[in-house]
Design a protein around this nucleic acid. Structure first.
Lengths: 164, 164
DNA sequence: TGTACAAATGTTATATATTAACGCAAAGCA
DNA sequence: TGCTTTGCGTTAATATATAACATTTGTACA
């Protein structure tokens, strides 16, 4: 039970979420500039809405928000923005929830892997290559070539467990 | 590259699929008898349709089939059967495909983990506890208590790779 | 600077996936 | 037999996602 356990995989209790959002948008701006991608107003706003909190965001909630702001907006408006953001690696889809979270790059060059608290609904990415390695070994045993991983672990985060 | 690699995680090339289906249904009958669950005609037929091949089956494809056979059948008919089968552990849902596969019990008492070939679309379960262990270790590092895992690995199976 | 092409967005419609609610019928049990 | 639970039929609604085509915006280049 040492205190060195429990890194900031989930965000720290009093973390500055405004800074968190600003950072994510700044990273998105930089990445798009670097790759010649166009982070248009809609795309940027969708990304910002997704980063509004650390819970997965539903496409139709994005649609409501965008629609309220602009007067118009139909499903394709949102889904196209999401396609772009997914393609650019700026957001991830949580398949088991049909919802989207901002990419915090915790996975670095591996496949994203999520811890999802069913109490507070916050999502965190599992960093490091350990899980990927285990999967790669198992896949190799049956001659399977991995090119995509959907890894979504549900449970209870430390904070929610402590709150009991 | 030894020949001892490559167990029958994916079904063998010439496997007797009729026997495969019969086995799955027999296991389902036994399990339901043992637990006092009622494998009704609809439920059994849905299970049989899912086992028709090793590809994930969509709910509406089941609906079409059932509907053609019985004349009637609405979405709840199929979804209720699926709920029962999922609950009983006889089938799994592939979240990334919104589709269902028969449980081959390859995971034994762990969480199911899938290899999904994007060429032939066959699905196999990864047996053994190695991946679960790696996940458990990573989760523990952040004080996360795991109670559910969605693990769906996409790629190319040995047979499809060999067919190039 | 204008034009031409590509990319992005608007718009309408539809496809696909899932659940809610209610009533009837059959199965299991006292 | 009557009661209760479970399963099923049916209608409707909600949730998620894409197709197809029109219009606009951005960008490059003559």
């Amino acid at each position: 039970m040492s205190d060195t356990f429990g890194q900031t995989v989930f965000e720290a209790p009093g973390h500055d979420h405004d800074a968190c959002i600003r950072g994510a948008l700044a990273r998105a701006d930089a990445l798009c500039a670097e790759r010649g991608l166009r982070l248009t107003a809609i795309r940027r706003r969708v990304l910002e809405l997704i980063w509004d909190n650390h819970r997965p965001t539903k496409a139709y909630d994005l649609l409501s928000a965008i629609s309220a702001e602009r007067g118009n907006a139909a499903p394709p408006t949102v889904y196209r923005a999401l396609d772009f953001l997914l393609e650019a690696g700026l957001v991830h889809k949580i398949e088991s929830l049909n919802a989207f979270v901002g990419c915090d790059a915790g996975h670095e060059r591996g496949h994203p892997k999520f811890l999802i608290c069913r109490r507070c609904e916050h999502v965190a990415e599992i960093p490091g290559p350990a899980v990927d390695s285990a999967i790669a070994r198992e896949a190799e045993r049956s001659g399977f070539t991995v090119d995509h991983e959907t890894i979504e672990i549900g449970g209870i985060c430390r904070r929610c467990a402590a709150a009991d």
